[in-house]
Design a protein around this nucleic acid. Structure first.
Length: 605
DNA sequence: CTAGGGTTAG
């Protein structure tokens, strides 16, 4: 066998397996030794006992290196090195080990005076991108500049951009892109993708149009990314334009394009057209179904989302964890505990780990369906918790009035090294509000910016106003709003109006209502609250006047809706809705509960 | 022989 044939064989072997197993490598090694007598420097290698499975990954580089030591001709080696680097597993969970192997090989190359070329560099950079190895990527970048590879090879530039993109350094992605002497479709797509992934969909779309100006024709991959940018922007007319581009340019409508279109139409609010695209897809996969389910849930069409899931089940298709998260989310918002429990059982039955997305969605579902103890049990059993798990738990506890517990869980976060975010503080402040903990609320509110460098948003101010209002500190609440560094919005005015209702502050309420109407003239919330305030103050005439004024305008009704599941039947209630069979009894009971609460409030103050 | 793909939560 000549060296060329040998190389072809080695290359084929390495390429066909994603990660080379030690056994295969040994076979390859012995094969090489048999067919081409080489000086055997490490006789131990062949006779060494097989290592346990978990050691395999780490022992690769040793085998590879000793294997390389057996080879003689350097010209053969460059291709071989390239082939080996390409086939090297880059497992993000063993990041340091993978990087170590990679750079050990590079060092070995350089030590043997073999210079990494325009095939070596992209595959090394690809591994760096997979491992999110920014510093190592920069080292290769420096090498590529020194050897002139960045100016001569578009693959080198594109993979460099990719490394910087996955590491979140948009500035450098742009820099490499701008300095590239030649740009192809992949360069543009990588730039576009970087913008979208980093939360700049607008810039991504602009890049797409610049790409079109540069007479570059987009393919399926590019368009999938542009469509995802449209989804993020919620810009239906833009999305339609892109759909037009796909149509005009005869782009193949494969399953990826179809899924991206379904997602885009749903996120842009055209659920009917999304369904049409979905129905007309010649091939669908689990992602197509997931796009429908999570897209509908995203639009608040939870019932429809569950219907699609049931349709999926009827067709005998296996849901994956994304499906289940979408289903759990819908269950949480509909209060359908039975279905949520079914998903939980499915997760257990199929030995799906209740961690990450699934675990968090389960916690949220149980909490929202009123089963806070089961939410807590899932939370406790999770092996890995993140800020979402903690937030779901804290918000859930706060809503159930488990104030102390909520604050205890919050206190646990710094101990396990998880930083709270803005939503976590919504839960914390809501807990304080429900517990009447004014001083603590102030403390957490201050901590938000002083310790965690989070800027309080209008929602947080709203929580504080609510807290002060419920605690009877209506003047402080008013003062708090006056001293806000940001413009109060409906959230804040609504909370203050609510506080006025509790304390029967009619005059203040009237001025607050005006403010609320200014920022939210199209909603009916202000009118409803205000008319309740008038009624409570026995000012019936004003209340009626207000209701009449409301009727004259064509107001958007706040979709006040709740549902509860009893013995597997979902009972849905909309605001003012009296269609339920036993609505008379229900309203009577509600009134009784309200009077109990009022008495309790009176006793408390 | 190399590079770029969609869906997921509080």
């Amino acid at each position: 066998m000549n060296s060329q044939e040998l190389w072809v064989h080695v290359y084929g072997r390495l390429k066909s397996c994603k990660s080379i197993s030690t056994t295969q490598l040994k076979q390859l090694h012995s094969f090489l030794i048999k067919t081409r007598p080489l000086p055997l420097k490490y006789p131990n290698l062949i006779s060494s006992p097989p290592s346990p499975p978990h050691r395999h990954k780490h022992s690769h580089s040793t085998h590879i290196l000793s294997f390389l030591n057996h080879l003689e001709k350097p010209d053969l080696c460059l291709s071989l090195y390239n082939a080996i680097i390409q086939g090297l597993p880059s497992n993000p969970t063993t990041k340091t080990a993978s990087l170590f192997q990679l750079f050990e090989l590079l060092e070995h190359m350089l030590a043997n005076d073999i210079l990494p070329d325009h095939y070596t560099v992209p595959s090394v950079l690809k591994a760096c991108a997979q491992l999110r190895a920014l510093r190592e990527g920069q080292q290769i970048h420096a090498y590529a500049i020194k050897t002139g590879l960045v100016l001569s090879n578009v693959y080198v530039n594109n993979t460099l951009m990719r490394v910087y993109a996955v590491c979140g350094v948009m500035k450098w992605v742009r820099m490499v892109f701008d300095e590239s002497p030649q740009r192809d479709l992949v360069s543009w797509t990588t730039l576009l993708q970087a913008y979208v992934k980093m939360g700049f969909p607008r810039e991504g779309v602009e890049a797409f149009f610049r790409m079109c100006d540069a007479e570059m024709r987009a393919d399926e991959m590019t368009l999938v990314i542009v469509l995802s940018a449209c989804s993020k922007l919620g810009d239906l007319s833009l999305g339609r334009k892109i759909n037009g581009y796909i149509y005009d340019n005869g782009v193949c409508r494969d399953v990826f394009i179809g899924n991206a279109l379904v997602d885009m139409y749903l996120k842009c609010g055209d659920a009917d057209f999304a369904r049409k695209v979905f129905n007309e897809m010649p091939v669908r996969n689990v992602v197509s179904w997931n796009s429908m389910i999570s897209g509908l849930a995203h639009q608040g069409k939870f019932k429809e989302a569950l219907d699609v899931f049931q349709e999926m089940q009827r067709m005998g298709l296996e849901p994956d964890d994304v499906t289940l998260v979408g289903v759990l989310n819908s269950c949480a918002n509909l209060g359908v505990l039975k279905m949520g429990e079914w998903v939980h059982a499915y997760v257990d039955r199929n030995q799906i780990e209740a961690d990450g997305f699934i675990g968090n969605a389960l916690v949220d579902m149980y909490a929202k369906c009123g089963s806070i103890d089961r939410a807590f049990r899932v939370f406790q059993r999770m092996n890995r918790r993140d800020v979402y798990s903690y937030t779901a738990m804290i918000v859930g506890l706060a809503m159930h009035g488990e104030v102390e517990m909520a604050l205890d869980i919050f206190a646990e976060m710094p101990r396990v090294g998880i930083e709270p975010d803005e939503v976590t503080f919504i839960g914390v402040l809501a807990a304080c509000s429900h517990g009447g903990l004014v001083a603590e609320g102030h403390k957490y509110f201050r901590e938000m910016s002083s310790v965690y460098k989070l800027r309080p948003q209008t929602e947080h101010y709203g929580c504080m106003v609510d807290l002060l209002g419920r605690a009877g500190l209506i003047n402080e609440a008013e003062e708090f709003v006056e001293n806000m560094p940001i413009e109060p919005d409906a959230f804040v005015w609504g909370a203050l109006l609510g506080a006025c209702r509790i304390h029967g502050k009619v005059e203040l309420a009237e001025s607050v209502m005006k403010k609320l109407l200014k920022v939210e003239p199209e909603r009916d919330g202000a009118y409803v609250l205000m008319s309740n305030i008038y009624s409570s103050a026995n000012r019936w005439r004003d209340a009626v006047k207000l209701r009449r004024a409301m009727k004259g305008k064509n107001m958007k009704k706040t979709p006040g809706c709740s549902s509860i599941e009893l013995d597997g039947i979902v009972h849905e209630f909309r605001k003012g809705d009296k269609s339920h069979k036993r609505s008379k009894e229900i309203y009577k009971l509600l009134e009784e509960i309200m009077s109990h609460i009022k008495n309790h409030e009176l006793l408390a103050h």
